[in-house]
Amino acid sequence: MPIRCEIVSQDKKLYEGDVDIVVLPGTGGIMGILPNHAPLLTTLNFGVVQVRTGDEEENFTVAGGVAEIQPDIVTVLADRAENIEEIDITRAEAAQERAKEYMEKGPPPDSDRYLAMSAALRRSNLRLDAVKRYRRGKPKTQAHITEE
């Protein structure tokens, strides 16, 4: 029996489908949700949400959020989320570079800009890590990337 999974970010719906297992980066640790899980509400850390059906696997980065688990459905409300296959590596790298440069200048640590930049740095680190770790070994999508 599969479990339904829905992933939405603040600007769109990213994923909807019946799956075997959902792996969530909860604040209390990474958890794998199988069908018939007890009702649970958890906040999410920066991390990767994995959705598996048979051999198929899809990965999404989330920058925090909330997940609600019911026995037959997992709802992920992410603050920011992306499908890993859709991450633009050059853009993420540029953003990381920009943020690093800014941080090295040693700006006042409580300014809005500092907070925004450190959040941006965390996000781009997360994106790049996730791409490195999860995008490998998928010849189909790799070809697709080089095309771009």
Partner: peptide, 16 residues
């Protein structure tokens, strides 16, 4: 889901 079963909250109901 008109479930009456109580949630498990992680970390806590208040924080969520």
């Amino acid at each position: 889901q008109k479930t009456a079963a109580a949630y498990i909250y992680e970390p806590s109901a208040e924080e969520i």
